[in-house]
Computed example of a mutant assay.
Amino acid sequence: MSDSADRARLLDRFPEPQPTEDGITDLVGTYTFFACLVLRHALLANASGGADHAVSCGHAELTAMGMLDQNIAGAAFRAEEQRLQRLSASGNAAGAWDTSVRAGWERLRAVVSRIVTEAR
């Protein structure tokens, strides 16, 4: 079993993907659930090389970014994610890694800011 598959199995032990009686009802839980879901699909895509997990990863990421856009005025994270996914799928992904890393940091800052604002 590949390292990625092992990591996906370990991720399944995290509390975020575990079903609960009440479901996910809080802000932090929602964002951490989507982070775990995207990471799980990315790890499985890496382990299998299959398109199914990659498509699931992309769908989960677009859903999470759409939710973030709905909760942050003027945000366009979903559109940026669509652009990055198209770039990645085009085979012309020059610079996609650096762009994705920058986008990831922007998204993390936005989520942390949203959580801090909600906590006030």
Rank of each mutant, 00 (worst) to 15 (best):
G29N: 03
A60G: 07
G95N: 11
N92G: 11
G49R: 07
A42N: 05
S56Y: 02
R83K: 07
L10R: 15
T25L: 10
E61L: 10
A75V: 02
A73T: 13
P15G: 09
I24R: 14
T25W: 10
I72K: 00
N92V: 02
A45L: 03
W97N: 13
Q18C: 11
L87K: 09
A94V: 11
D26R: 05
V28I: 14
F33W: 12
A45N: 01
A76T: 10
A96S: 13
D3Q: 15
S2Q: 12
A45F: 01
A96F: 08
S4W: 03
F33M: 03
T25K: 11
D22T: 12
A96E: 11
S4T: 05
I24F: 08
D26T: 06
T63S: 04
S4P: 10
R9N: 14
N92A: 13
F14N: 14
A89F: 06
T25S: 07
A35F: 03
A73G: 04
D69T: 08
A75D: 00
A47Y: 08
A42K: 06
N71G: 08
E16R: 04
R40G: 06
G58N: 09
L43Q: 01
N46F: 08
F14V: 14
L11E: 05
R13P: 09
T20M: 07
T20I: 13
A64W: 01
A76L: 07
D6C: 13
A89N: 10
T30R: 11
R40P: 00
